[in-house]
Write a protein that binds this DNA or RNA. Structure first.
Lengths: 208, 208
DNA sequence: GCGCGAACTGGAACGTGTTCTTCCTCGGCC
DNA sequence: GGCCGAGGAAGAACACGTTCCAGTTCGCGC
């Protein structure tokens, strides 16, 4: 278990080496693509390591060299999705909405749209996120940081209020977001209810 | 006890029959005891179905008759723990604390004390809770309801504020609680940080 | 007592995540 | 050209959740 790599990989694995050759970078991407494809089709259970390996055209052992477990694999895929979303928001310039609550709501709605578009993908990624253990901490932290950044930026133009609150609020919103996803995955609430709960929480926390 | 269940099993399985005979009730309890014991010793991974069956002195098939999956088993154990905690709070009379935030904080601290006392047990139960799927909805709902009740009662004497908020706030606190536990299980935050995050969120939500 | 059906036992069997072993391929170096 | 070691291929093997089956026991109505 030689973790603590000197230079942390951005979204990816954490094995020994850090993807030097182009061929490796391409394999890495192919694996993540296969993962997302399978997840989109059949959810968490359909992301079977043998199937991913086959679809990505690598051997099972190679898959495990790049991603030391199924959870690592899926959380890495989640991180990549978040990076794309983050880039999308940044490229957008200003987030629409007059108040912080509006803007955060907009971002959440946007991010949660996948509940309708790709329910199985969301299910797979959520499941992976919550079944991570300490060995996935690095990948988890990437996701956490990205989400915090997205939320903090969305609420950014903030009226007179202690700035220390911002991080705490972003964190709580992130927590509610996770819990809402879990409730949805667990079949306790529909997509609409999930979205509604999120809105409520945002308004509760960002009332001015 | 006291779960207002007409026909639904209170905390337990959901198989066909509802535990009629004393022998069955005793088996049921024995299985849950074995589960908690194993969880306390070795966490989620140590709760292996064969081991539970052996320790509870039932056959594997019998175990599966009572609890159709490992997750059902652990969430049922969680529900039983919550029932005990709930009964404890009710027997206590008034919750200590001057403000709603104080009282909720007190309850959370009390409930979270297990993080130090029985970290592996908490880990096992948390893991199970978040890896539940729709088939465990009944057991999950028991836990959800108990927690909501505990929180709502703790914040009960509440100053002028729309009462509709109470449920929403309790829900958000429950969400943060879950997310904090997940963060702790994932190795992202220590027990102390987990507790601190909870306090912060409670104060954020219950400022008057 | 007797017979019956439900519940229980013991254990084999299967699927999927994970590990391991053996052999092969490729790009750099003499 | 020929060697070499790292990374990859192929697939067997193992662990644990889950399912299934054949036989046994238990409690109950007769």
């Amino acid at each position: 278990m030689t973790t603590t790599s000197s230079t942390a990989p951005s979204t990816g694995s954490l094995s020994a080496a850090d993807l030097d050759s182009p061929a490796q970078r391409e394999r890495h991407a192919r694996i993540l693509d296969a993962t997302v494809t399978l997840a989109r089709e059949g959810g968490f259970d359909a992301v079977q390591m043998r199937a991913v390996a086959e679809r990505a055209d690598v051997a099972l052992g190679t898959l495990y060299r790049y991603f030391p477990s199924k959870v690592h694999l899926l959380v890495s895929a989640l991180a990549r999705e978040f990076e794309r979303a983050d880039a999308g928001f940044r490229g957008l310039g200003a987030i629409p909405g007059a108040t912080p609550a509006d803007r955060v709501g907009w971002v959440m709605r946007r991010t949660t749209r996948g509940l309708h578009d790709d329910p199985r993908l969301i299910e797979a990624l959520t499941r992976a996120f919550v079944s991570a253990d300490a060995s996935v901490a690095a990948e988890i932290r990437v996701v956490e940081t990205l989400l915090a950044g997205i939320l903090t930026r969305a609420m950014q133009p903030r009226s007179p209020r202690s700035p220390a609150d911002d991080d705490a609020i972003a964190r709580v919103i992130g927590d509610v977001w996770l819990a809402a996803l879990v409730a949805w995955v667990t079949g306790r609430s529909s997509a609409a209810e999930t979205a509604a709960h999120l809105e409520t929480a945002v308004q509760l926390l960002l009332r001015e």
